[in-house]
Amino acid sequence: MFDIGFWELLVIGVLALLVLGPERLPGAIRSTINSVRSVRNAATGFKQEVEHQLRVHELHENLKKAEQQGLKDMSPDLQKSVDELKDAAKSVQEPYKKNQ
Results as ranks from 00 to 15, higher is better:
G5Y: 05
V56A: 03
Q68Y: 11
G21D: 03
E58F: 11
I12Q: 10
A88M: 05
M74W: 01
H52E: 10
K98E: 14
Q79R: 06
F46A: 09
P26A: 02
F6D: 12
E84T: 13
W7Y: 12
A89F: 07
A66D: 03
D87V: 08
H60N: 07
Q79N: 06
V14A: 01
D83T: 13
L59H: 01
A42D: 09
V50D: 03
G70E: 05
S31D: 07
K90T: 11
G13K: 00
K47F: 09
G27L: 12
L54H: 03
N99W: 15
V56T: 04
P26E: 02
D73M: 10
L71P: 12
F6W: 10
P22M: 01
E58Y: 06
P22D: 01
Q93C: 14
G5E: 12
E94L: 11
K72G: 11
P22G: 03
A88H: 03
I29P: 02
V14P: 00
F6L: 14
I12L: 15
E61T: 11
V11H: 08
E49C: 03
G70N: 06
M1W: 08
K72A: 15
P22F: 05
R55C: 11
S38D: 05
L63Q: 01
I4G: 01
W7R: 13
